[in-house]
Design a protein around this nucleic acid. Structure first.
Lengths: 341, 341
DNA sequence: CTGAAAGCGCTTACAG
DNA sequence: CTGAAAGCGCTTACAG
């Protein structure tokens, strides 16, 4: 058994040229069937696999997608947002089906990752995941675009910002969440979440929230909105702040499930009952949502479709096909936390 | 701005040979400081990054670790065990700190992945994750070993089985779980989990469970043990089976948190109170464990240490250092589900 | 400290 | 259908 066989070793054993081995292994129709099969059998017997570095050097391709997850959570011990984590599996499977490997990297938005992956020929394109701060984010995207890097973003693409994206219709999602609360007879609905330009997806959910209120003849009140990012502890903090304001509320719309679930725990800590005293709705449908008590009503983003959209998008860009951004339909998932069940 | 600059382009601009550029970019002490800095500045200005394929072809290294997660869950929609998912972040960060990229792949144990990653020079070594079926698994490991593939396993390495591993002391963990239940006055403790040779980690937990019982003068009863793998629905099914047997029990030890949490829900569905009627303990401390009601008492495996151990192990193997398998200390995490709080 | 040269293992245009 | 040859962009032993 040859230790690290090369195509030349196969050629010698098969009595053909190295070029023919290369063709046979790539299933070229130029090679006679018998020759091809004989060569492939030898390769299999020798546990031979094409050296990816050599092939990549020749073809300028890596058949690899880099999946960059940037989260701003501090500290080496911080947990990654489960919503994005659960996307990994779908992305990997999708990519694999199209013949691509997936390289993962956790990034701080402050890092200088953006150009390197493709420029070093480690990856043919990038998928970017995370609820980022779009002010910083925007610069990075422009840099990527001007370096001709191919990339797909999960989440909104802002007008004038480069790149293609897959995201859900956050305005519609926010509208549905709030309409559901209104249908349960709640009228003083607090909204927990950051709505600055830094988080356009979250701002869009707020926009839908306000529309639903106005359609019901209710004017949104600033006193009922508390800032919160989707990192650990912020939902709790925001709920405490809301309680301290002393403004009356009978429902909370947490702009992400992570925030909504922390709000649930905070309210319970203050002796408030869910859904009797306060109805709660979230957004994302992370797996925790169905396991908390009461189970959390939320708006589901179909992460499987999203993942497939991202992978097909980036592969399309790599292969030079025209790509369009995709908007997914968010869907209300009714559970016990709003009193509808 | 040169479109896809190479080291030769840098050399021309710097007025030196291509070899000197290569040395300068790798911080070789052979290059004079001024020359090196001048070259590095030019590279930065041009957004130049070393072509990994070319470098890898020369050096026979990829500086990449392949992370293979095999789960037997059927169907494209199945969720990955959150315990392993949460290890991704730590592994990636650890690897990154040592200068390695991480390639991820979801595998069916039936696939023929095992040799390809290293043989194709896509990765310098493998990390294998998952509660696998060790009968199939063993063959794969032997094949890997005989192909001189470097790999680290999370979980037990069976005697006589090749490879190095990082895992927790499952016997001690099982012992502690059951001792805790005994300390709460529970004596008829059901055990839900597969204990065949197929799942040696789980079997080890059962072994610890039995030891703790015997140390308390209680003989383990087969009627109190129900088979269950750690995939969706099995914990529920096993609990129903236990109830149908009609055997009395005042506690359940779920061999993984996923099983324990499903058991909780199943018991609640049957009108049983936790922990009053039945105490429940799990194993792993997935993030769900602290969020269910009542919060789940469990045995924590320190996934961060495990991840770091796996990465340091595989990098050690790659760099030819001697490596030892690591056994981590499991730790009891007391919450409300056993009545101790 | 620097350069010229060989060679890593492929893929593919060119020639037959 | 097959082979000889060039060349992808690096790294590094060798020579100076």
């Amino acid at each position: 058994m040859i230790e690290n066989p090369t195509s030349r070793d196969i050629a010698d054993l098969a009595g053909v040229s190295q070029a023919t081995v290369s063709r046979a292994l790539r299933n070229s129709p130029l090679v006679r069937k018998e020759t091809r099969e004989r060569i492939q059998k030898i390769a299999r017997d020798l546990n031979y696999f094409v050296n990816r570095n050599a092939a990549g050097l020749r073809t300028h391709q890596s058949n690899t997608i880099a999946l960059l997850l940037f989260d701003e959570t501090e500290g080496a011990d911080a947990q990654i947002n489960p919503f994005f984590l659960s996307m990994f599996g779908y992305i990997t499977r999708s990519a694999s089906a199209l013949g691509y490997d997936v390289l993962i990297s956790m990034q701080q938005l402050s890092d200088d990752w953006h150009i390197e992956y493709q420029a070093s020929h480690r990856a043919d394109g990038l998928i970017l995941l995370g609820y980022g701060d779009y002010l910083t984010y925007g610069e990075k995207l422009s840099a990527l675009a001007s370096a001709n890097t191919r990339f797909m973003i999960f989440g909104a693409t802002i007008d004038g910002q480069p790149g293609h994206s897959v995201g859900c219709d956050n305005v519609a999602g926010g509208y549905r969440a709030t309409r559901h609360l209104l249908e349960q007879g709640r009228t003083r609905i607090a909204f927990l979440g950051n709505i600055s330009q830094r988080s356009p997806e979250l701002a869009a959910r707020y926009e839908g929230h306000c529309q639903a209120l106005r359609d019901a003849g209710i004017e949104p009140k600033d006193a009922l909105r508390v800032d919160a990012m989707s990192s650990e502890g912020q939902g709790h903090r925001a709920t405490v702040e809301l309680l301290e304001r002393g403004v009356e509320f009978d429902a909370i719309f947490g702009v992400t499930d992570v925030i909504a679930i922390e709000a649930m725990h905070a309210l319970e800590g203050h002796g408030l009952g869910i859904p009797d005293d306060v109805a709660i709705i979230g957004f994302d449908d992370i797996s925790l949502a169905s396991h908390v008590t009461p189970a959390l009503t939320t708006v589901r983003q179909d992460i499987r479709l999203a993942a497939e959209g991202l992978v097909h998008g980036i592969v399309g860009l790599i292969e030079g096909k025209p790509i369009e951004s995709t908007l997914l339909e968010p869907r209300l998932v009714v559970r016990a936390s709003c009193g509808a069940l």
